[in-house]
């Protein structure tokens, strides 16, 4: 199935290639003798590639599986099936030491700048901890200098290094989290809603920081967020998820100008633009209903229950993600011919 997807040519081997990734969670009943009563297919056959130096935005509403996808790529979750080819190596079956080695090249930035920093550690030890975990802190002087450089690189002042997380605002804490993620000089950063807990004026500072760091360090991002405007701003390409599947993947401007999947279209229409003149002119197509439970996804295309253009075939047959141009794929029966 992977050859049907927009992917790289031979000349630019992607940094990450995810193929038919599935993450299923069993629902069990009983305490001593557990029996499986159902399965939640949080991620169900997701494939995409990320090229070196680009940002792939992963958007979707709650329950779409975007965070689970991120956690599976980082191998904080074990995939049920599928391949995760990172820098030429399938890391899906990796364990223990092998995984530790992979994580030197792949790091995470979390959503909650309060919950993700240990309140009892100073900023210096938080940022330096990855070096300690990976046994790279042998030379104390070099480590100290490295941590100082990291703290400076995210726009914090050197004298902040010996303070504790509670002394910082949300935006500053997110900078600390970013500094920590950069300590091992990874090539891929997975950022899960990294700016959604921040106020708008601070959000812009952190978005700019992400973009500056990418330019300076040649980083690759998997940027997971629900805010389409933020994702469009920061991404090179965008993948839209709905109930565990990618429904459309495209260049960010194509996706906005000409959304092909009815869900992408609905999502775009739902997001208000910060300009009353534009809003007054925009067509409004609000779709009804809410995202169905992942425990009982609708048969056929899982969006058909809310789709304004659903056809008979959509109720029975699940559409697969089909490449319709070199950079673009969509999973919709409207686009099968």
């Amino acid at each position: 199935m992977s050859d049907a997807l927009p992917g790289p040519t031979l000349s630019d081997e992607p940094i990450l290639r995810v193929e038919d990734l599935k993450v299923h969670f069993p629902i069990t009943k009983g305490i001593v003798i557990q029996r499986k009563v159902a399965t939640v297919k949080a991620v169900d056959g997701v494939s995409f590639t990320i090229r070196r130096g680009e940002t792939l935005g992963l958007v979707g509403e709650s329950g779409s599986g975007k965070s689970t996808t991120g956690l599976a790529v980082l191998r904080m979750l074990t995939p049920t099936a599928g391949r995760i080819v990172f820098e030429g190596q399938d890391i899906a079956p990796h364990r223990g030491a092998e995984l530790l080695a992979v994580r030197r090249r792949m790091q995470m930035v979390y959503q909650d700048p309060y919950g993700s920093l240990n309140p009892r550690m100073t900023i210096r030890s938080i940022v330096g901890e990855p070096l300690a975990v990976h046994g790279l802190d042998g030379d104390k002087k070099a480590t100290r200098e490295k941590v100082a450089a990291l703290i400076a690189s995210v726009g914090l002042l050197p004298d902040m290094a010996d303070r504790y997380p509670h002394e910082f605002s949300g935006g500053q804490r997110q900078r600390i989290g970013i500094a920590r993620s950069l300590a091992l000089e990874p090539s891929l950063l997975i950022a899960d809603e990294p700016v959604s807990a921040l106020d708008v004026s601070i959000q812009a500072q952190v978005i700019n920081l992400f973009m500056d760091l990418q330019e300076r360090l040649g980083l690759t991002y998997l940027f997971i967020a629900h805010d389409l405007a933020v994702v469009r701003h920061i991404s090179t390409r965008i993948a839209v998820m709905y109930l565990g599947r990618i429904v459309e993947i495209a260049d960010r401007d194509d996706l906005y100008r000409n959304p092909l999947h009815p869900y992408t279209e609905a999502l775009m229409a739902a997001v208000p633009v910060a300009d009353p003149e534009v809003e007054a002119r925009r067509p409004r197509a609000v779709i009804s209903g809410e995202v169905p439970s992942a425990l009982r996804p609708p048969p056929g295309c899982s969006f058909h229950t809310r789709c304004p253009r659903a056809m008979a075939v959509c109720k029975t047959e699940q559409p697969f993600l089909r490449k319709i141009s070199p950079e673009r794929a969509v999973a919709c029966h409207l686009h099968t011919s």
Binding site: S201, A204, A229
Partner: peptide, 25 residues
């Protein structure tokens, strides 16, 4: 003015640098 320049717009040209308000609330 600062707020308006801080928000990425869905219809905006991507890549345009945001102009955040410096400093903390």
């Amino acid at each position: 003015l600062g707020l308006m320049a801080s928000v990425p717009r869905l219809d905006g040209g991507g890549g345009r640098r945001l102009m955040p308000i410096e400093g903390q609330p």
